Computed example of a mutant assay.
Amino acid sequence: MSKGMKENMISILMMIAGNFVIAAGVALFIFPLNILSGGVAGIAVAIEPIFHLDKTLVVNALTIGLYIVGACTLGKKFALKTMISTIIYPFFITFTTFILKDVTITTNPLLGSLYGGICIGIGIGLVYRVGGSTGGMDIPPLVINKYTGIPLPTLVMCVDGLTVILGASTYGVEAAMIGLISVWICGQMIDKVISFGGHDAKQIMIITEKREEMIKEIFKEIDRGITILQAKGAYTNTDKPVIMIVVYKKQFATLNHVISMIDPEAFVVVSDVNEVQGEGFTYQQEL
């Protein structure tokens, strides 16, 4: 099997798994507890008291209908990227809601919102990780953005806001607030899944008058690559070379000790880094 074919198979399996996890989260938590989450599931929950339509039917109709709109307006590339999710998600949501209809994990709306958000976030993250799209309520902001030029983040916020307002009008403000927990947790999990497998690290910028001594000691104690950035003090107009180094989080305490030992008055800026690639991180085993 060629490398390209293997990668395509892995991508398809990840998208299938992601859509299944989303459907399971909806069937186990969102639908039974009427959680006003984001996406088409949240819309289905919000409008049920108004139109008394089956939530699964609404999700399937919106998923397919929005895909057709997106395919017609956003082009072939979007249609291909979203096709798998559009085909398998309606099947999974129908299957899981039928199989799990008698399964009750919790009757607490707060717990349901929390764990529903976790499941949906993990599922969406798996799909996004391989460059796929879940379609659904992602499509209206994309279509409006194409014709109006309104920034996409603004449109996404507006769509989510309208979903919450709709839910608040049918279930009350408290239910909408519980739903917001699911939306927030979902966003956090998407970020975690997308960045999973990366190296959590810290980037340190050091300005010191004892540069050579500092570099020598860092090499001795940590054995990490160092980059010298050329900078100039704005007030003094003198050159101030900056030592930049990226270390694993567990190495930061050692580096901090080295800095304090060599030059306690050094100017140090520390930033968290979610992912690092390159020699010493990608190609070598973590220390």
Rank of each mutant, 00 (worst) to 15 (best):
M177K: 00
G136A: 15
Y89T: 03
T86M: 14
I165C: 12
S85K: 03
L162G: 04
T56H: 06
I185Q: 08
T106D: 05
I190W: 07
G116L: 14
F91D: 09
L180A: 07
C186I: 03
E174I: 00
M189K: 03
V183H: 00
F91S: 10
I178K: 00
P151H: 08
L114V: 15
V156W: 08
A79E: 12
M189C: 10
T134G: 06
A71R: 12
I165W: 08
L142P: 08
K76R: 15
T56I: 13
I88T: 06
P153Y: 10
K81T: 14
L126M: 15
M177A: 00
K55D: 04
K101L: 05
G179S: 09
G136P: 05
I105L: 15
I139T: 02
K76G: 01
I105K: 05
I190V: 15
I105Q: 03
L142F: 11
N108C: 11
V159E: 07
V59E: 04
F92Y: 14
T107C: 10
W184Y: 15
A71I: 09
T56R: 07
N108P: 10
I93H: 01
D102I: 08
G117H: 05
I84N: 03
I88N: 06
T94S: 14
V159A: 11
A168R: 02
G70N: 04
T63C: 09
F78N: 00
K81Q: 14
K101C: 05
Y171P: 01
L110K: 02
Y171C: 00
L126Y: 09
D138V: 11
L155P: 01
A175M: 08
I122A: 13
V59Y: 10
V130H: 03
K101Q: 14
T106A: 12
L62R: 02
I150M: 07
I88D: 09
G116R: 08
T154Y: 14
I150V: 14
T148K: 12
I88W: 13
I124D: 12
L110V: 13
L80S: 14
K76A: 02
N145F: 10
I122E: 05
Y89G: 04
L66Q: 03
C72D: 07
L110D: 03
M83N: 02
N60R: 10
K77M: 11
L152A: 06
V159R: 10
G116P: 10
Y115Q: 03
V143Y: 10
G187S: 07
D102L: 12
L142Q: 14
V58G: 03
T104F: 13
L114T: 15
I144M: 11
I84E: 06
I150E: 00
R129N: 12
V58A: 07
I84L: 15
D160Y: 03
F78R: 03
V59G: 00
G65Y: 08
